[in-house]
Amino acid sequence: MLILRSSPASPFGRKVKLALAELGLSDRVEVAATDTTNPADSLRTQNPLGKIPTLVLEDGTTLFDSRVIVEYLDHLAGGGRIIPAGAERFAQLRLQALADGICDAALLQVYEVRFRPAEIRHAGWVENQQGKIDRALAALEAEPPAFADRPRIGEIALACALGYLDLRHEGKWRAAHPRLVAWLDAFSAKMPAFEATRVKS
């Protein structure tokens, strides 16, 4: 049995869970709750960076981060399932990188509030992170990604990024991005695991 170290609210952990569902591998993985702020958590020996998600293989070796994990899972499922071959591969990896960048910036904004006292928070730095999100969303709104009957890694990553903005940023992105809202609705309808992995608060 593989072990996925993650937490329910992690957009990167959610990406791995959706990949598992799409690849039909969910029953081969145990999801183990993880506290990245706890020095005693075994995560820090499994992944020197102390980050989630981390996948523990049956022989005890580990894989991280989410991009490496989903590549491994696609390989485990026979290859070419959520990460296509040829030119399409790079289009999907590019979309995944853009979506992951949205998550990175959104997470940094959350951490600024959660871990830094109000008197030393840096408004300009927070605005810089928001600029990354705004530019990425504008590019995606102008040309929402088309996806085939089955979701691939780029679409999965984007759905998780938008879901994280809903969870931690009150869905403020929605008002200015109606085409992306419609895209996410269509994605959710095609992939029941998206709603099943949604954290309510």
Rank of each mutant, 00 (worst) to 15 (best):
Ala136Ile: 03
Asp65Trp: 01
Ala196Gln: 13
Gln92Glu: 15
Arg135Gly: 11
Pro145Phe: 07
Tyr111Gln: 06
Pro117Ile: 10
Val199Arg: 06
Gly124Leu: 09
Asn38Met: 05
Pro117Gln: 05
Gln46Cys: 02
Ser10Ile: 00
Thr54Met: 10
Gly101Ile: 09
Gly101Asn: 09
Lys190Asn: 08
Val56Asn: 05
Gly101Leu: 00
Ala87Phe: 09
Leu23Trp: 10
Arg174Thr: 02
Ala186Thr: 14
Gly80Glu: 11
Leu63Trp: 08
Asp100Lys: 01
Leu167Gln: 07
Ala146Asn: 07
Leu140Gln: 10
Asp185Glu: 15
Thr197Cys: 10
Val113His: 14
Glu88Trp: 00
Ser6His: 02
Leu140Thr: 04
Asp27Asn: 12
Arg14Asp: 06
Leu18Tyr: 05
Ile156Gln: 10
Asp41His: 13
Asp185Tyr: 10
Ala148Leu: 13
Val68Lys: 01
Val16Ala: 03
Asp35Ile: 03
Arg114Asn: 09
Cys103Phe: 00
Arg5His: 15
Trp173Cys: 04
Leu4Asn: 01
Met191Gly: 02
Glu71Asn: 11
Met191His: 08
Tyr164Met: 04
Val31Met: 02
Ala85Asn: 11
Lys17Met: 12
Leu73Trp: 04
Leu73Lys: 01
Leu93Phe: 10
Phe64Leu: 01
Val181Trp: 03
Leu2His: 13
Ala139Lys: 14
Thr61Gly: 05
Val110Pro: 03
Phe90Tyr: 15
Leu137Ala: 02
Arg152Pro: 08
Glu71Thr: 14
Ala161Leu: 07
Leu107Arg: 05
Leu140Tyr: 00
Val199Trp: 03
Gln92Tyr: 08
Arg44Gln: 10
Pro39Glu: 10
Arg5Tyr: 12
Ala157Cys: 12
Val56Pro: 02
Leu98Gln: 07
Ala182Pro: 03
Pro144Ala: 04
Ser201Trp: 08
Ala186Arg: 15
Asp134Arg: 10
His75Glu: 15
His177Thr: 04
Leu108Arg: 14
Leu167Ile: 06
Thr36Trp: 00
Ala87Ser: 13
Val199Ile: 12
Gly154Gln: 06
Arg135Ala: 15
Ala91Tyr: 09
Ala148Phe: 05
His75Gln: 15
Ala146Glu: 14
Glu141Met: 13
Leu57Asn: 10
Val56Cys: 05
Glu170Pro: 00
Met191Lys: 04
Ala182Thr: 09
Ala40Leu: 11
Ala136Lys: 08
Ala176Gln: 12
Trp183Gln: 08
His75Trp: 14
Leu137Arg: 05
Asp104Val: 02
Gly101Tyr: 02
Ala123Leu: 12
Arg28Gly: 11
Ala182Phe: 03
Ser188Gly: 13
Arg150Ala: 15
